[in-house]
Design a protein around this nucleic acid. Structure first.
Length: 494
RNA sequence: GCGGUGCUAGUCUAGUCUGGUUAGGACAUAGCCUUGCCAAGGCUAUAAGGCGGGUUCAAAUCCCGCGCACCGCACCA
């Protein structure tokens, strides 16, 4: 339905997002948001914050620096493990990961070798280019983090953060005190992260600077399950593609009981249910366009004990694509910072002394915004973005049916009134149909038109985007009616 | 990063092979007229060959470098 070009073209035309710095030929891996893009993104973020911080009274938003010193990222493992050792063939120019070359030859793991060690092993094992048989050049390290030199001499080594999560872990102890030592404790960050992707592709899907919305939940593994009972939510089947079947474009309906039966902790399943509800109910993603995809041991990061990707099926990107993840990171991160900083991260909670475990709910904001554009794009005679009313950049538009007989003046008064409560938009240019069409393209769910009957006290018309139908509403009732319609509290019945 | 293909107004495109008028059109946008509930019609206006270099009397067109995009490979702890 919606091709990549369809979505991108609409996005550029209507002020959602476009390649950054295109004045200078573009900047691969970087995108800028326009006025409607920022509004849409903020609404997504607000909904995300409301949904996930709403899971507990002890979940909060924090904000931390985007630049971190080397020591912190050394402890987190990013300096050593966020690196690929690349080896390039001197004849055909193909590049390979050094550890993969060794692994293929010896069928052994070769994690954590230096470039020199890789070179030595390659010579020892007489490995040549798998592509052309040519001689392989020297191994070089490629770290996915952007390095920075801090201070006038640039001698304090630092990096742009590769994930927001580290900011949370670094502040765990402070917040645990400030929040009066309670578990579970949830700390979320919505902010930017940076990765020097080798080849950014597919628009906003793989970027070098991107937005993450991540909630880190700190808990005691001994008691967490009792604190988040699956309860009534357990009757909702989860959409899951297990590791062996996720290359298929499908998902199974798995009851929470079966998911627990397959060895997933009940607290993990509970959070899968919450994430699925966010997508199906709040974002209104069609059921068959949503799934969790299990990552097997080989695919997931070594510190993730359980890892399911959150995936949304997008025509423009060729199928199910990752928009988030649910990661059980155990106590890996806090323990890493404990040994890196020599500051104790263990806490006393109730009768037990422990380093809390972490469940991370991680989302790519830009990917989610793109997914919404893709899913809600409907191409007919004219394009319509069928965004859920809560997410639409503009909530309500106001038009005078004609530009005479005092109708524009009246419409301006209606607009001024609505503007106080809603993101409203006034338009008196072109024909009425053209104005409706413009609003359809940016997903404005409701358009109010002032006509001759309005002047006779018979109210205004409210036109709904998807059905194109209208109802007549008394002016005095308009704000409340719109509030109910936009919140989803009541639905439009013509 | 490697290979392939491509890059013309806000969008979509004609022209490029075979160098040669003022780079043409559609839609969008703005203004005016007209109409008055779903991109109606008329007139007018704004607006373009990714960037840099070379060849040539002359380059959107041919050549080189770079940038960017898409596809494949690789990568995505």
């Amino acid at each position: 339905m919606a091709s990549y070009d369809d979505v991108m073209s609409l996005s550029v035309r209507r002020g959602f997002l476009w390649p950054a710095v295109d004045l200078y030929g573009g900047f691969a891996g970087f995108y800028d948001y326009g006025h409607n893009g920022v509004l849409l993104r903020r609404r997504w973020e607000d909904l995300w914050i409301e949904t996930f911080l709403g899971l507990s009274d002890n979940y909060y938003l924090i904000d931390t620096t985007t630049i971190l010193p080397e020591a912190a990222l050394k402890a987190s493992g990013h300096v050593d493990h966020f690196t690929d050792i690349l080896v390039t063939c001197t004849r055909c120019g193909e590049s390979y990961r050094g550890d993969h070359l060794l692994e293929t030859k010896t069928h052994e793991e070769h994690e954590g070798l230096t470039p020199e060690e890789i070179d030595a092993r390659i010579r020892e094992l007489k490995i040549r280019c798998p592509n052309c048989g040519g001689e392989l050049g020297p191994a070089r390290a490629f770290n996915m983090m952007f390095p920075l030199g801090i201070g006038p001499m640039g001698k304090d080594r630092a990096y742009l953060r590769p994930e927001t999560a580290q900011g949370v872990y670094l502040n765990f102890k402070r917040e645990f005190e400030a929040l009066r030592r309670k578990l579970p404790m949830g700390l979320a960050i919505v902010g930017r992260a940076y990765r020097n992707e080798i080849s950014p592709r597919q628009g906003a899907y793989r970027m070098r600077e991107f937005l993450q919305a991540e909630l880190q939940i700190f808990f005691d593994p001994a008691t967490f399950a009792d604190l988040v009972p699956i309860g009534a939510a357990g009757s909702e089947p989860l959409r899951i593609a297990w590791a062996h079947e996720k290359n298929e474009p499908t998902a199974d309906d798995v009851s929470s009981k079966d998911a627990v039966g397959r060895g997933l902790p009940s607290w993990y399943v509970y959070h899968l249910i919450q994430v699925q509800r966010f997508y199906l109910n709040a974002l209104r993603v069609p059921r068959d366009a949503f799934r969790f995809a299990e990552l097997d041991e080989k695919e997931r990061a070594f510190y993730n004990k359980i890892h399911f990707d959150v995936q949304v099926k997008q025509e423009s990107l060729g199928g199910f694509k990752e928009v988030g993840g649910v990661h059980y990171r155990t106590d890996h991160d806090l323990k890493g910072h404990e040994s890196g900083s020599h500051a104790k991260q263990s806490i006393t909670f109730g009768s037990s002394k422990l380093v809390p475990h972490v469940l991370e709910l991680s989302f790519g904001v830009d990917r989610n915004v793109w997914a919404l554009l893709d899913l809600t794009f409907h191409k007919g005679e004219r394009a319509v973005l069928r965004l859920p009313p809560r997410l639409a950049p503009i909530g309500v538009a106001v038009f005078p049916l004609v530009n005479k007989d005092g109708i524009p003046e009246h419409a301006e008064r209606v607009y001024a009134q609505l503007q106080r409560r809603f993101t409203a938009f006034f338009d008196d240019s072109g024909s009425i149909g053209r104005r409706y069409a413009r609003m359809d393209e940016i997903g404005t769910p409701f358009s109010v038109t002032v006509d001759h009957e309005t002047l006779e006290g018979k109210g205004v018309t409210v036109r709904e985007r998807d059905s194109q139908k209208q109802i007549r509403v008394k002016e005095a009732d308009l704000p409340d009616t719109l509030t109910r319609l936009l919140s989803g509290e009541s639905s439009f019945v013509a």
